[in-house]
Design a protein around this nucleic acid. Structure first.
Lengths: 192, 192
DNA sequence: TTTTCCATGTAACTCGTTACATGATTTC
DNA sequence: GAAATCATGTAACGAGTTACATGGAAAA
């Protein structure tokens, strides 16, 4: 259960879809975020089904090859939110996991999202403390630059989160139309 | 030829070493940076040898099992600097590659290092331009937060690089004793 | 009519990790 | 005497990518 599961579940959260259209969407819109390949997505969807997180049914038509349409289950929804929280709070992983989590942050209630961002900021501050307090000679020598850079990036993310939170307090998000990820899915996977 | 090659070549640059001590050093000091496992390092060292980037000779003793001591070759040194430049300039990779490259930045002449950092900053600014200029609705919706965060991090790194360069101009690095990575290697891999 | 798109699937391959094997030598 | 350290190696496994197979439908 890693960030790719989060991505797939998230894409299925609003719209039931078949594998092809999911792959299409990922390749066209999320290429720099995910890197997951077609074969992998198909395989993961099957795994999600055996875990009961999604449900598959075959849709046949005269116009196109049979599609395997996946629908998220209640268990899948629960797993999605668990993963979402996990990766919103994870400060160690590569940032593509964070990117995916942030993509779906608007699926949370406003309060919950803000609480998680605050908690993320807290964890980032912890890491800053750890890195910054360790005297330079305790690291392997030569690592100085790398540590300094990581510190700078961590601090920048804390500042960014505070910025986001400030903006949210100002205006309760006004629910910009077309602001949610799955709204676009219908547009890209039209029937032909 | 990825960042793990850079790491191994870098560790061999000053000190010839056998695989065990390299693994030891990575595990004890670079655990959060590399994650490379013992078996992998042994295999990569063999590969580096077949490529002529390092040279192996067996060192036997009564006190310990035979060691395979690896020494970097001129071709290896060239490859090291090529990789170092590559990963210092790479703004797309996961940041562990950048961390490793920064660890070895002090192997470059001062001018060269600064030039590469300047070029890195330039490339970061390019990415900022790309990301920032694309209007919000051109991304997949919902991606806003992720893009904003990435922008914030890119800008922070540019600022950090400028900071480093400013500091270097002030004092030409004063060659702090014990500031180079390999100085520590002798201390950790003593004979017993 | 040839090519491209749809939609899934699989077999072969690469790569890295895990876990174990080895055998001598210190340490407890 | 048992356990850990030294130093390398390998066999089995899992995960993911590549590249191809399929076959009908629409577009050129």
């Amino acid at each position: 259960m890693d960030e790719r599961h989060l991505l797939l579940l998230g894409l299925l959260l609003n719209q039931s879809q078949h594998g092809y259209s999911i792959n299409e969407f990922i390749e066209k819109n999320l290429g720099h975020v995910s890197g997951m390949k077609r074969a992998t997505a198909y395989a993961l969807l099957e795994k999600l089904e055996t875990k009961g997180l999604v449900q598959m049914e075959t849709e046949t038509s005269a116009n196109y090859p049979p599609r395997k349409v996946y629908t998220i289950t209640p268990a899948g929804r629960a797993a999605f939110f668990a993963l979402l929280q996990q990766y919103l709070l994870a400060t160690g992983e590569g940032s593509s996991a964070t990117d995916i989590a942030l993509m779906f942050a608007d699926r949370l209630e406003h309060d919950r999202a803000e609480a998680l961002l605050r908690e993320r900021a807290a964890r980032l501050r912890e890491r800053i403390k750890e890195l910054g307090s360790t005297p330079a000679h305790a690291h392997a020598p030569g690592v100085d630059l790398a540590v300094q850079r990581k510190l700078a990036l961590l601090k920048a993310e804390v500042a960014w989160i505070q910025d986001v939170l400030r903006r949210r307090e100002g205006g309760p998000a006004a629910a910009t139309p077309g602001n949610r990820l799955t709204d676009a899915i219908g547009e890209t996977s039209e029937q032909r």
